[in-house]
Amino acid sequence: MPSSIFINQLYRPPSSSSPETLPSPNTGVRAFHQSLPGYKPSPLVSVPAIAARQGIRWCLVKDETERLGLPAFKILGASWATYRALGERLGLRENGDVVSLQRLAEAAKAEGVVLFAATDGNHGRAVARMAGYLGVGARIYVPSLLDEEAISKIRGEGAEVVVYDGDYDQTVLATKVAAENHAEGKGVLISDTALTVDDETANWIVEGYQTMFDEMEEQVLEITGTRTITHVVTPVGVGSLTQAVVTHFQRTPRSPKPMVIAVEPKSAACLKASLEAGEMTSVKTEYTICTGMCCGTLSAIGWPMLKSGISAAVAVEDSDVDTATKNLQSCGINAGPCGAASLAALESLSSGEELALGPQSVVVLLCTEGRRGYEMRSNSQPEP
Results as ranks from 00 to 15, higher is better:
P2K: 03
S3Y: 01
S3C: 12
F6P: 02
F6V: 03
N8Q: 10
N8V: 00
Y11H: 14
R12F: 12
P13M: 02
P13S: 07
P14R: 03
E20S: 15
V29S: 06
S35I: 03
G38R: 09
Y39Q: 08
P41D: 13
P48Q: 07
A49I: 00
I50G: 04
I50V: 13
Q54A: 14
Q54F: 14
G55E: 10
L68G: 01
P71S: 08
L76I: 04
A81D: 08
T82E: 00
L86D: 06
L92H: 05
E94Q: 13
N95E: 15
A108Y: 14
V113M: 05
G121D: 13
V127M: 00
A128T: 09
A128F: 03
G135T: 11
G137V: 03
S144T: 12
D147E: 11
G156T: 04
G156Y: 07
E157L: 08
E160W: 07
V161R: 11
Y164Q: 07
G166T: 10
D167T: 13
D167V: 13
V177G: 10
E180P: 01
H182V: 11
V188C: 02
V188F: 03
I190S: 03
I190M: 08
S191A: 14
D192H: 06
T193P: 00
T193E: 01
L195A: 12
L195M: 15
D198F: 10
A202L: 00
N203W: 10
G208I: 08
Y209I: 14
Q219W: 11
E222R: 15
T228Q: 15
T234G: 12
P235R: 09
G237F: 04
V238C: 10
Q243N: 14
V246K: 03
V246T: 05
R251H: 03
T252Y: 09
K257N: 11
A262H: 09
V263I: 09
S267K: 10
A268Q: 05
L271C: 05
K272A: 13
A277G: 10
E279T: 12
M280Y: 01
V283A: 06
K284L: 07
Y287T: 09
I289R: 02
G292T: 11
M293Y: 03
C294T: 15
T297A: 06
G302F: 11
L306H: 05
A312S: 07
V314G: 06
A335D: 03
S342K: 04
L343N: 08
A344M: 07
E354T: 06
L357Y: 04
Q360P: 00
V362N: 11
V363T: 10
L365P: 01
E369V: 06
Y374S: 12
N379H: 15
